[in-house]
Design a protein around this nucleic acid. Structure first.
Lengths: 249, 249
DNA sequence: GCAAAAGTGTTGTCCTTACACCCATGC
DNA sequence: GCATGGGTGTAAGGACAACACTTTTGC
């Protein structure tokens, strides 16, 4: 019920005096710790997975938790998220995007902690987990329970974000191996969106986009006719970024 | 370059010991102030506007700034944003949504301050500004300059967010008076999206959605044939929320 | 009667959907 | 040779884009 201005001041021309010392202003603000939490999606065995560790808080004993850490003093928020990802999985060069900030006063049992959720997609097989502390594990997104903190809410938000995002940008390719079959691609879309799609139309759609490179290789060791393998043409996609218009609600 | 766990602990079965006192863990974290900033868009004289005040910091003398304030100790982030809006404009019952969090270490001259940007849309005429301190004013979005802090970046992000959002959800109606002509609606879309649209197709589009209520009234005091006025059927829209699918990039 | 903007339909194109049969491989 | 999934084409319907003339009002 107050307005923000006016510690260390000094009268000035017009109406309100200007604040000369921003530092003492900021020092008067209440403070809280800021963390980042990474929701890292992967795809394996035709299921969308998310990377979790066991919480190391006793109050959450046995519950699963997102990968997160405090943001350091001089660190960008994005940097902090990349650092967590690197430290926990050993991976670099991964797509990572801010999704939403969660700051309920009681979301952390140790006092208020505001967390910025980042979402990341990576390929379970290509990116072997290099560090396995706290039982770092992939969990099927559809079978989550007993999460620590508000991490279930965070995952739900990120999952919705992903469903939407993957229809506007070809993020899905970050979840697949470098070479993939169209069936794998379709399985991925079906898993993420929770729908089933017509195989022929799906192919037409992707071929007409013209972002797939036919590498003239085939699946091996499959008990049926092997499918062709493709790579995604990231370069071409970057050039043709969509000029987007269409009112549609 | 460290991992997060392990102040006040005590050895335990398996590998890592569990933390029994979350409070002392959180107390060990570095802390920063959290603020919210509101990017309040309005529409007037066929221009998209944003609500700004003069910065009250001397280092930003003469520059414009978003409406913002510190988040109180026991306050939800959303609540804080609504409070700012209420205190600065006198308005309640306005659409408000979290857009993105900005936390560069040097974005505030008084020390690190992390801010959560919220976006709000309201109707310039309907919602008269009740409080006019710090030269609270509407500014054309296309003519911003000399903003304090990183507020120009924040507005840019929110503007992009709005352009996208308004094509998926009928947010635009929050910017118009209760009764509006189709021309007003089209002007609004053209202003926000920065394109010009075919009048007949625009009408067809909106009539076919069937969310406009014909109230059998007409414009008055216009020097040409008066247009029909409509209301937006928020209720019907809520019921028919879009089931959305279409890969499209 | 003139200026200014409202109102109105049709057509072609493209995109989306639905749908069924043959093919290549492993066993 | 059979089971499994890969690969392919077409037709109908719906959405979108382009486009010009008549109507109503104030002055």
């Amino acid at each position: 019920m107050d307005k923000s201005p006016s510690p260390g001041v000094l009268d000035m021309p017009q109406e309100a005096p200007l604040i000369q010392d921003p530092k003492s202003l900021v020092d008067s603000y209440p403070v809280v710790p800021i963390t980042v939490d990474c929701v890292i999606f992967g795809f394996d065995e035709n299921e969308l997975k998310v990377l979790l560790i066991r919480s190391d808080l006793e109050v959450f004993e046995g519950k699963w938790s997102l990968l997160g850490d405090v943001v350091h003093d001089t660190e960008e928020l994005d940097e902090a998220a990349y650092r967590v990802l690197r430290q926990r999985t050993g991976m670099e060069d991964v797509f990572l995007e801010q999704v939403k900030t969660f700051g309920s006063p009681n979301r952390h049992p140790g006092g208020r902690v505001v967390t910025v959720a980042y979402c990341s997609l990576l390929n379970v097989l290509h990116h072997q987990l290099k560090i396995l502390d706290n039982e770092l594990h992939w969990h099927a997104v559809n079978q989550l329970c007993d999460m620590a903190f508000d991490h279930k809410d965070i995952i739900d938000e990120c999952y919705s974000w992903l469903q939407k995002r993957i229809q506007e940008h070809p993020l899905a390719f970050n979840l697949l191996p470098e070479k993939f079959s169209l069936r794998q691609l379709q399985n991925l879309y079906e898993a993420i969106l929770g729908v089933s799609l017509d195989r022929r139309n799906f192919r037409k759609k992707f071929f007409s986009m013209d972002f797939l490179i036919d590498i003239e290789e085939y699946e091996e060791d499959v008990p049926h006719r092997p499918g062709k393998l493709y790579k995604f043409n990231f370069e071409k996609y970057e050039q043709n970024k969509r000029k987007w218009f269409g009112i549609d609600f």
